[in-house]
């Protein structure tokens, strides 16, 4: 599916640019996008290296497994197919906690660790496993208690109450999370019935 979305976006864009006489924008935008991708990945090296180092210590000390055990009642429902106390569960919980606290720099490396752990038990390495899809559904719709970036911007523009949007944000993201997890369940079911 990502194949068609990707293809469709590019082909449609080039046709539109051609009709509008804006064709020179394509090459420039493509190269800028490529540059942005490389820059983002390079920036990730530092935070991923740091957190992978620290998480290796946490794993060796048995802390990730303990964390996985503590949250088992919840993860048993969300990830029934994962082995008990699997290290992926610990990483998933740490990723979600960092997201909830608005610690983006810590959340990404934890998420990548979780993906690596999930990939180890994925039967088809090129295809997303159901656990991966559930994890990403949780991750992209995850509750944020403090939207710190936007509060900073509101403060900068002299808002009389910069944190007034905390409540509305929590409500909106909670709705998204509920629907995200429900649709994930539904898709799991549909794919299983179809034997895909």
């Amino acid at each position: 599916m990502v194949n068609y979305i990707w293809l469709g976006m590019i082909i449609f864009s080039i046709v539109v640019a051609g009709i509008n006489g804006n064709i020179e924008a394509i090459t420039k935008a493509a190269l800028e996008g490529a540059g942005e991708g490389v820059k983002t990945s390079l920036h990730l090296i530092s935070i991923i290296a740091f957190w992978l180092g620290l998480m290796r210590i946490a794993e060796a000390a048995g802390l990730i497994q303990i964390l996985a055990r503590i949250v088992r009642p919840l993860t048993r429902i969300l990830f029934p197919e994962l082995p008990r106390d699997h290290p992926a569960l610990g990483a998933i919980i740490m990723n979600l906690s960092a997201n909830i606290l608005g610690l983006g720099n810590a959340a990404t490396p934890m998420g990548l660790i979780a993906m690596q752990e999930l990939q180890k038990i994925n039967r088809e390495p090129k295809t997303a496993s159901p656990s991966m899809c559930t994890f990403l559904a949780l991750n992209t719709s995850c509750l944020t208690l403090i939207p710190s970036t936007i509060i900073g911007i509101r403060l900068l523009h002299n808002s009389s109450d910069p944190t007034s949007v905390v409540g509305t944000t929590i409500f909106a993201t909670a709705c998204g999370m509920i629907v995200g997890v429900s649709v994930d369940r539904l898709m799991r079911f549909i794919y299983r019935v179809q034997g895909r």
Partner: peptide
């Protein structure tokens, strides 16, 4: 980013789920 870091190229229904959550939000 997440699928890329482990070399997964077939996202199955992950985009549908993500966009459903975004629309709800």
């Amino acid at each position: 980013l997440y699928f890329g870091s482990v070399g997964v190229t077939k996202y199955r229904y992950a985009i549908v789920v993500g966009l459903a959550a975004d629309l709800t939000t």
